[in-house]
Design a protein around this nucleic acid. Structure first.
Lengths: 223, 223
DNA sequence: ATTGCAAGAATGTCAGACAATCGGCTTGAC
DNA sequence: GTCAAGCCGATTGTCTGACATTCTTGCAAT
């Protein structure tokens, strides 16, 4: 048995359930950016006590998914385009590196998983369910990041992508964006499958750049 | 007046004070890796109530500075060399990028600040105060990261460096490491001052690689 | 030596309370 | 009519105390 295999079962505590639920609520756009979150309301809605809720909020604050201004309480941060750009730039840095590493080290079975997730996105791209598109696309990246051989790269990437989930949902609804996204992702996949590190890097870079451009369009038009 | 200048003074809440104090305590190595943190003890030591402490602990957990296992409570994670390697690799990615950008965009006065921090490190390098060495070195990087034009790059970097503060303290105590570190940092500074982006990238890369090697030595010898 | 059990310690969670602070509304002055 | 001042409800920051659940440790028994 590998010594680093963690056999511990993790009990679901109220705090963790709450973090997960709120995170999902934020992803799905339940709260408007800039809107305040009222502790007492959330407590009744979630059916938990204030101390538990406040612990959960502190976790989300550290993840930068919410902001907590002293004496004003938690709110959904309004993401400026400046910050969004910065996030896309770092995301490019990380994803390019991950795709490159992935190309030279992914296992055959994980490669099949990657292909499956690409198919799933292909199906979602033709549908009207924009949440499904975002989710399946996220799966695709997850597999790449999980196979780049660097858990920190994966962790940091997840944190960043979470913060631009707002844009992802909107730009994936853009006319034609899902289809072009699909072809870009297919290119990434082909490069990785061929073990071509350089090509994987380049394809990955192009993909992020276009995602960023799409996000800008959706922001300019939508606001 | 720039419209994005945040004039809001942030009241110091007990929670934030606690996070800062604990973070500093962790940096300075007050807690052994792997050791558990007992809530009741911390409460009396810090003179605060359990809810406030628990909120602070959740923040630190999200920063990955502590681990909280359900029903076992918080503890200082023992950093494996595998994870440390992963952190150094991502740190390299970020720092190289930051140094490169910095070279082509830093302002003259910030460049002077950078020079001052280099001098401060030079002084610390000759002293015996290893905490001062770590702190002044951290200042040097901070200035570079703050002037790379990407706040996210800075934020992510800070989070990663915090997690390897343990190693930084130990490797800075290594015979000769501070001096070689100094010459590497000087090289970075010179490249940035000359506006030579490529050289800044290369110097930065070498610096991180050597820091990583020093960390490995200190780990192998010290454990 | 290993197993099983019991006492103690520590955590997870809640309810309730109160002061400090913020935001909006009313009031009053010019 | 506009603007300033001040009051009031809403909300957050923090604490105390409590209790069930879970973990750890030491000891006894096989």
């Amino acid at each position: 048995m590998p010594p680093d295999l963690n056999l511990r079962i993790s009990p679901r505590s109220v705090q963790r359930e709450t973090v997960d639920k709120l995170r999902l609520a934020i992803f799905s756009g339940l709260f408007q950016p800039g809107s305040r979150l009222i502790e007492s309301q959330l407590c009744t809605q979630l059916g938990i006590s204030r101390p538990s809720l406040r612990e959960a909020l502190r976790s989300l604050e550290a993840e930068r998914l919410i902001e907590i201004v002293p004496n004003r309480g938690p709110s959904i941060p309004a993401l400026s385009w400046e910050v969004a750009t910065a996030i896309y730039e770092v995301r490019e840095l990380l994803e390019v590196e991950a795709a490159g590493r992935c190309a030279s080290r992914i296992s055959p079975e994980q490669l099949r998983e990657l292909e499956k997730s690409l198919s799933a996105f292909e199906a979602a791209a033709s549908s009207n369910d924009s949440l499904a598109r975002v989710m399946t696309a996220a799966d695709f990246y997850s597999i790449i990041l999980a196979n780049c051989g660097n858990p920190i790269l994966e962790e940091v990437h997840r944190g960043l992508v979470a913060r631009i989930s707002f844009f992802r949902g909107r730009s994936m609804s853009l006319e034609g964006r899902a289809q072009s996204s699909l072809s870009e992702m297919r290119e990434i996949f082909e490069s990785i499958a061929a073990g071509d590190e350089k090509a994987a890097r380049e394809a990955s870079k192009q993909h992020v750049l276009k995602a960023k451009a799409a996000a800008k369009i959706s922001m300019d038009s939508g606001l």
